[in-house]
Structure formats: C-alpha cells, structure tokens
Design a protein around this nucleic acid. Structure first.
Lengths: 239, 239
DNA sequence: TCGCTTCCGTGCGCTAGCGTACATAGCAGG
DNA sequence: CCTGCTATGTACGCTAGCGCACGGAAGCGA
C-alpha cells in the first residue's frame, strides 16, 4: 500500500501516532543519499536528522591515523543523528552512506520540539537508541573474540537485513574500512565464502547466493543483535 | 562540605534541581557494593538503578562460551541501569562491581516517574547516556586497533579517574576478563609497566606510581572519552 | 608449622591477521 | 588497440596474542 516514496517506509516514522506524524510530515524532505556521502562529521553540529528508507548508513569511529571501525549500522529501522535529541548536539563519530538510497531529512529543532512533547516519538527514539547501544556493545565483543570470517558474515547479514535486494554495491576496500581490517583480509575471507558458494563477488558487487549458509557460519553476535532489535522495536510488519 | 555519606557524591544526583533532589532523596537507599557483585544480569528485569559514589561498576558483554568484554565503566559520574529509562527494561549485558564501595539505589519506577517529568534529570540522564555511548564506541575501536599494553593503560586510567585513591584492588585474572584477553597477557603487559616503574603489582593490589607515565603510553582513546565526558557532563567540580 | 589455595610469572609452539609487494583482470576512454 | 585506473587475488615474512603447561610465591586456615 506504500506509495513509491513514503516516509512510512522508515519504521520509526511508520510507528508514530497520527497526530505526531501529521505534525512532522510537512517538514520531512526526501533526499537521495549517494554511496560514501557523509551525513555526520566528528564534532560538527548537525542541522538535520535522517530517517533512511532504502539506504544504509554506517556509524564509524575514526582515529587520528585514519584507521576506522564501524560501530553500528542504520537502515529503515532507525535514525541517524541521535546526539541531537540526546542533548550532546555533536558526536565524535562519523556517519557514512554505506548503500545508496532514499531517506527523509528533518530539521533538528523540529525533532527536538517533538521529542520534548514526550509522546510516542520520544519513547520510540529512546528504545531505538537502546537497540543501537546493544549493537555497539556486541560489535565491541565481536571485534575482540571472533574471526574475520565470522565478522564478515555478521556484516553481510546486518546489511542484508536492511536491503530490499540480495545485491550489495560495496568494494572490499570499503568493507575493510568498516570492519577495521586490511583489504587483503577481506579478499581472503570473501574468497572462502565465494568458494563455498555462499556469495558471488564481482568488482564492487556482492550477490548473496545462500543466506542460510551465511547464518550457519556467523557468530552468535548477529542473533543477539537481531533479537534485541526485534524485542525493542517489534518488527512484526510484513516488509 | 560533603557529609561522609551524601548522595551528592554522585555527580548526577548532585546536578539535580532542588525540587527534583527533594523528591528523590527519601527513596535513595545507600548500599555497599562488594567486589564482583552483579547488579544487572543479562535479560533480567531490574528493580533498581544504582548511583555509585565511590564504587566502580563495569558493564560487560558476555558470550555463550563465557568469554566477556567490558564495554564501559561507570563511577560517580554516572548511573547503572540506563535500560530502565530508555524503555527496554532489560539489556543483554551484565553489570559487575569492579571496585567495592558505596552507591545509592533507587526504585526503578520512581526513576521513571521523575524521568517522565522531562526536567533536569531527563536531560542529565540522556546526556550521560550519550557519553556512555561514546565510551562504548571508543572501546570497540580500541579493541580493534590497539595493543594490549595500550588498552591496559587506558583501563587503568579510566579506573583511576573514578577512584579516590591510587590503589586498585583487582587481580590480573579479573582485568583479563574485563579486557577480554588472556590472564597471561595481562601479566606480561603489567610486568612491562611495573619494570618501567609506572605501577606496582602485588597479589591483587595495584598501586599507580606514575600517572603521567601511563598517560604517555596510553592510546588516544582515553583522551577522546575523557574529553567527551567533560564536554557532556561538565565536570568542573572540585572532587 | 603444614598444607592448601590463590595469584603471578614464564616458556613454547601455534595461528590470525598485519605490512608489503606485486600480479592480474575488468572497465573506460581515446 | 593501447593506456590507465580500479578492484581483486596472491605470496611471504612478521608479530601479537592464544592455548597450554608448569613453577613458584604469598597468604590463609587448621
């Protein structure tokens, strides 16, 4: 029933009460996010928050020497720019578009005003933030204890869950940046998955051929995060 | 001017408005936390939140095989049990007392009621949560990119910042659990620091002898976290 | 004083992932 | 077709940290 472009493709916006949605919708601006575009820069004050619909955004922690690590990924289930309503205004991390697609942009002040009404939106955003925290925590423990192979599977599955298709546009170089490992390491791990017939890699395009196969190889971290997202955000919707 | 036991030794409680503080203070219950005590168990609903005064609490992410990693540490600057006001009620992580000491306990429903008044407390708690998120993110990137030596320095400094003394009661075995590494690895790294004259280790008691020396060895992660805590929570108080 | 437990130190072989270097293959444009 | 660029594959030595095993030392209780 969704129009081709409908803010309610974003799950947070879809869960708002009628009143809230009607207050916000005149100020929602549809934007197309390009691969690699930066939505949030470390320490810079944001003017907008973003509600992805069919795009994916990575939250990255970047260090002085340029090395980076993805700490969480945001798709249609979430929002980019939580520090606006959390009160800090800025954050030391970056937000990079990991998969091009659409999103709805909202002025930061409008969001804060609505947040301060302490209605459904506030509760939704806080629950979402807690889910995000879980993802970050699990990422930390995964970084510590699990093999690159497993982490790559986790990353692919988390991305896949946020995509309408089975195709990912993403070079190994970029994945390496996300995971905070060498590009060659990704080549090697991806090669294993490819030889096992789980994925097919071709110059920046990954096709997932066997999702159950990936789920059989992934570490528990994926399930922990997914379960917590389901619990907190109740994804009982069809699409 | 603080009494020997004063809830306002916790910085969040100290920053409340007079009204808020007076509403809460009849329900604050002083408790002594013992080393190793568990305040929050994975998936269990909490009855209380805790405001540490001179104790330190570690938030741990524990995996199926028992391996664990500390994702953040909480002292007098914070609160244990954010999932209560974030709306999730439970969390997949655990909270363990890392350094014995005092705390004030508050019934969860009382906290939620006050939180929903959308006053100073709400803003404080949300800003604190954002600081916590920064700590978790930086922990994740540190796990990935930095040596055990550096991480041990970071851990010692973060603990030291939350302690009144220069002495830490903590076995290497426990530190290893926090950092998610082998006990032997901690022995080795701690040995280096000891030979360099920075610390003195003796059967579960660590004395920090040369704090500037630790700061010279630590990775940038420590400073990033500290700066963000200062920015968000404004620790311009004397003690 | 003896015995037990806890905590710390050390050694050794092993492996995952790093840093580096280089080779190849697809794609685009002239 | 040739050039050049980007993405991927491969190889090789290196190191940090792991798993395991053991030894010793400090404290505690009987």
């Amino acid at each position: 029933m969704a129009l081709q472009h409908d803010p309610r493709q974003n799950h947070l916006l879809a869960a708002l009460s009628r009143d809230e949605y009607q207050r916000l919708t005149p100020h929602l601006e549809r934007v197309e996010l390009a691969l690699g575009e930066s939505l949030v820069e470390s320490g810079k004050v944001m003017q907008h928050v973003y509600f992805p619909t069919d795009s994916i955004v990575s939250l990255l922690c970047v260090m002085e020497d340029g090395d980076s690590t993805e700490i969480a990924v945001v798709g249609a289930e979430g929002i980019v720019g939580i520090s606006l309503f959390m009160g800090g205004e800025t954050t030391p991390s970056r937000a990079i578009v990991q998969s091009a697609g659409g999103a709805y942009r909202l002025n930061g002040q409008r969001l804060k005003d609505e947040f301060d009404r302490a209605g459904t939106l506030q509760h939704l955003l806080l629950r979402y933030t807690q889910a995000l925290i879980t993802q970050m925590a699990q990422t930390a423990v995964c970084n510590r204890h699990h093999s690159l192979d497993q982490q790559l599977c986790r990353w692919l599955l988390l991305s896949l869950d946020r995509l309408p298709t089975n195709e990912l546009v993403m070079t190994q170089e970029l994945i390496a940046n996300m995971l905070g490992v060498r590009r060659e390491g990704v080549t090697e791990s991806a090669g294993k998955l490819q030889r096992a017939g789980l994925i097919s890699y071709h110059r920046g395009h990954i096709s997932i051929l066997d999702r159950p196969g990936l789920e059989a190889r992934v570490c528990e971290c994926y399930a922990v995060v997914k379960k917590e997202y389901d619990r907190l955000l109740g994804y009982h919707r069809p699409g």
